[in-house]
């Protein structure tokens, strides 16, 4: 177990280092960032001064070492637009995105997994066909469209929910559904496949032969076995939700990091963008790491490899 945990931690560390390096390279691929930052009509001297001040006149590898050094001190640089630390700006927006992601995850898992189980166990019945249609819809309608449709129906016509912005818990409902819908479909499909796969195994028949009902076999044995592929999806989906938040937050004027990313790109506040990209990448790596530990908790075959 220790060895398993150790190797996963090392893998995660390597992945994060890779992420940092790729972000650095991408940031420098677009040429000299100084030109993006100076006001219109600045003199060559002003440009050179700013370039020197930001360190962009140094060789690339020196910049890279400084970049890693700064990150090591948790120094993510200053926002060139607002002149406050970029990390502070992102941190102020992060709780909103976390709230939204939690809401969306609740929609995705809370609906997706039960729907997948029902589709697998009620295979061939009318309920499966109805649910399959819902899942297909959830998967096919793009977020920007479903968001606008939700606003049109529930906020404009029925006036049940606020159109956009932050408020009480009701303001969270539509963005969560819009963001969670595609993920919900993914969970439903993966759960269905995983449960069907397990249902075909011999231990299901053996369980029924001991007098268990099919439902009891599903709850006691099948779900735990089927959870392993679903955990993998969960880890990937959490990262996808953060990426999807960029669109949903824009549609619903939700002040999270997705909206911040769009604003920062438009105002060329590249250090803020860099923090957001690093954050989302690290969330991906860390949720995968978490999934590896959950596997080990569920499956003794993984836990007990020597």
């Amino acid at each position: 177990m220790l060895r398993y945990a150790g190797s996963r931690l090392i893998q995660a560390a390597i992945a994060i280092f890779g992420v940092l390096t790729i972000v650095f390279i991408v940031m420098h691929l677009s040429g000299d960032p100084t030109l993006l930052l100076v006001p219109q009509g600045a003199s060559t001297q002003q440009i050179n001064e700013l370039r020197h001040q930001l360190g962009f006149d140094q060789p690339l590898w020196v910049q890279y070492v400084n970049y890693l050094k700064d990150l090591g001190h948790l120094d993510f640089g200053m926002s060139v637009v607002q002149h406050v630390p970029a990390a502070e700006i992102v941190a102020s927006r992060l709780p909103y995105t976390m709230m939204l992601a939690a809401g969306a995850l609740m929609v995705a898992i809370g609906i997706g997994i039960p729907v997948g189980i029902i589709m697998a166990t009620g295979r061939g019945g009318w309920l499966e066909k109805v649910l399959a249609a819902i899942v297909l819809t959830g998967q096919s309608v793009p977020t920007f469209l479903s968001g606008i449709l939700l606003i049109a129906v529930f906020a404009v016509n029925l006036r049940w929910l606020p159109t956009s912005g932050v408020g009480d818990i009701r303001a969270l409902i539509m963005p969560s559904i819009a963001l969670g819908a595609i993920s919900m479909s993914t969970f439903a499909r993966m759960t269905r496949i995983a449960v069907l796969d397990e249902l075909s195994k011999d231990y299901v028949r053996a369980g029924r032969a001991r007098g268990l009902s099919l439902g009891a076999v599903v709850f006691r044995h099948v779900l735990r076995n089927a959870s392993i592929p679903v955990i993998t999806i969960a880890a990937l989906e959490i990262g996808n939700l953060l990426a999807g938040a960029v669109i949903v937050e824009t549609v619903f004027a939700w002040p999270g990091i997705g909206q911040l990313a769009i604003q920062s790109i438009q105002s060329r506040d590249f250090l803020v963008v860099q923090v957001i990209v690093l954050l989302i990448s690290c969330v991906y790596v860390l949720t995968s790491l978490l999934a590896d530990f959950v596997y080990a908790a569920v499956d003794p075959r993984i836990r007990m490899v020597r």
């Binding site: 011999d202 028949r205 032969a209 001991r210 006691r220 735990r224 076995n225 569920v298 499956d299």
Partner: peptide, 18 residues
């Protein structure tokens, strides 16, 4: 399981692995 029981061809697959 109480009055009539059965055992199968693939014993390892007939047990829940977890």
């Amino acid at each position: 399981g109480k009055d009539i029981s059965i055992i199968f061809q693939e014993p390892s697959a007939s047990l829940d692995p977890l």
